[in-house]
Simulated scan of single mutants.
Amino acid sequence: MARKKLETLTEQMFYVLLALRTERHGYGVMQYVARLTQERVTIGAGTLYALLDRFEKDGYIHRTRTMESRKYYVISPQGEERLQQEYRRIRQQARDMERALGEEEPL
């Protein structure tokens, strides 16, 4: 079954939106995600710039300024809502896992 457009976010998508809760340029997003996840999640330049372009077109982020060829972005209210939806979905999955692990026999 095909996934609906942005029904769920990939891990990289989630972390890009999370990083842009503070204004950052592309390289700053890459550094922040790597630092936050202790290098567990890294985002390559090609992936990052494709996501920034897509998120900007979808209205999830806004370009705030360009300085010395660096483009700065920040999450939009629509992007924040999408990020929160994904956070709720992930938390529900974790609750489901905890419930399943506590069962004596599967449902």
Rank of each mutant, 00 (worst) to 15 (best):
E80G: 02
G59E: 06
A100M: 10
Q84I: 08
M1L: 11
L52G: 02
E23Y: 13
Y72V: 04
F55R: 06
E104H: 12
F55L: 02
L17W: 03
E104V: 12
Y15N: 02
F55A: 01
R3P: 08
I61F: 05
F14S: 03
S76W: 14
K4W: 13
S76H: 09
R70D: 00
R63W: 01
R89I: 06
L48R: 02
R3D: 09
H25N: 14
R63C: 01
G28Y: 11
T47W: 01
Y15Q: 03
L101H: 12
T42M: 07
E86K: 07
M30F: 09
T64R: 14
A34P: 05
R70G: 00
E103I: 02
A2T: 09
T37A: 00
E86I: 03
R3I: 13
Y73D: 00
V16M: 05
Q78S: 08
E86H: 14
L17N: 06
M97T: 12
Q12S: 12
T42R: 15
V16I: 15
E11Q: 12
G59W: 02
R35P: 00
E39R: 14
G102R: 14
R82W: 11
T47V: 10
E68Q: 08
L101Q: 13
S76V: 03
E80N: 06
K5P: 06
R70Q: 05
F14P: 06
A100T: 05
L36A: 08
E7I: 07
E81A: 12
R35G: 01
I43T: 04
T8E: 13
L36Q: 08
Y73S: 00
R89Y: 15
T37I: 04
Q92I: 08
Y27K: 13
R95F: 10
V74A: 07
A100C: 02
Y72G: 00
E98I: 14
H62Y: 15
R21D: 01
T37N: 01
F55Q: 02
Q78P: 00
E80R: 14
L6N: 12
I90F: 07
K5W: 10
M1Y: 13
H62I: 05
R40P: 04
A19D: 06
E80H: 11
E104P: 02
E104R: 14
T47Y: 02
R70Y: 15
Q12I: 09
Y27S: 03
T47E: 02
A50D: 12
R40Y: 12
L20I: 05
M30Y: 11
M97D: 10
G28H: 09
T22V: 14
R3C: 03
R35N: 09
R95I: 09
P106M: 07
L51E: 02
Y15C: 01
Y49R: 12
R99F: 10
E11T: 15
T42W: 04
G79M: 06
L36M: 10
R63K: 12
A100P: 05
E56C: 03
M97Y: 15
T64Q: 09
E86S: 05
K5L: 05
K57Q: 08
M67N: 05
E81V: 08
R35L: 08
K57Y: 10
